[in-house]
Amino acid sequence: MKGPRVLGSDRGQTGVRPGSDQGQTRLRRSLAAIAASAGQAPIPTVLLCAWLAILTCTLAARGPQSSPASTQAPARIISLVPAVTEMLFAIGAGDRVVGVSSYEIYPPEAKKRPSMGALFDPDVERILAAKSDLVIVYGSQTELMSRLQRASVPMFRYEHAGLADITSTIRALGDRVGRGPRAREVATSIERDLDAIRQSVAGKPRPKTALLFGREPGALRNMYASGGIGFMHDMLELAGGIDAFADVKRQNLQATTEILLARAPEVIIEVHPAEGWTPERIVTERAVWKGLPSLPAVRTGRIHILTNDRLIVPGPRVAEGARLLASVLHAAGR
């Protein structure tokens, strides 16, 4: 190491320049390097890991799995997955839910239950203290699963997948919590609703649609679209649209301006949670699309900003979400 330079990564700096002739400078640099390595290194690493974790779990598409630890109906259920919490309430097991995630949206009662953390930050201590006999975990929570396994807490493992997996999860969940008959009723009713929507749009023209679920406010940047797998894609196809990104075999992709221009969607549907979306904001955000004037959707004004969590949660309200999509895609007079 005779070389005069020492390099550090852009974000995590460690080490000082050796061979410095001034003691004071060396001390100053050491101080700075220590402060830099202590202060800077971990945070971007944490963010990167979190991002990769999200990516992994959005890419994974597996159905539900139930651990065979116990067969009797649980009395104290903790659900760390909002979609499954909705399912539990829908099949009449809501009164047995003693803990929920911090992301709960629906039903209102679910939000009142004690929060046990969420995907990245499950509060293991509270979960164990709640003496639950069934914990619903997301498939990527491997650390939590191994800890619960050591404590012999039964688990129900869930991961987001396609539309058909929603009703099959409801049935499996019903069997697991001793509400089998009711769960089958709910699932069948959802499937009947979905079938009705599919039939109502049969034979109608199917517009090529980009289903976006995120965009930077006020700009056509940082846009994410539903890819060719997952429940959002399935909902769009069922509601009578052709997914502009159907060939991309991922649950989501970044929709750059280039890919949007190349795919030329006839309809653009943005879905957002209702919070923070005033009517004025919707008007402002729709106008942003004028930046891509050749898009057929922009020319014909078929840009819809839907602020409704039914479209985002793969739970028992999917049929309502699909109906909303169908009404937007096939509204009378278009």
């Binding site: 979190a50 999200i54 992301y103 995907l119 679920f213 995120g214 994410y224 949670p273 985002i312």
Partner: peptide
């Protein structure tokens, strides 16, 4: 929320 986290990290 989840989608915001994703976009923010990105």
């Amino acid at each position: 929320d989840f989608a915001q986290t994703y976009r923010a990290l990105r």
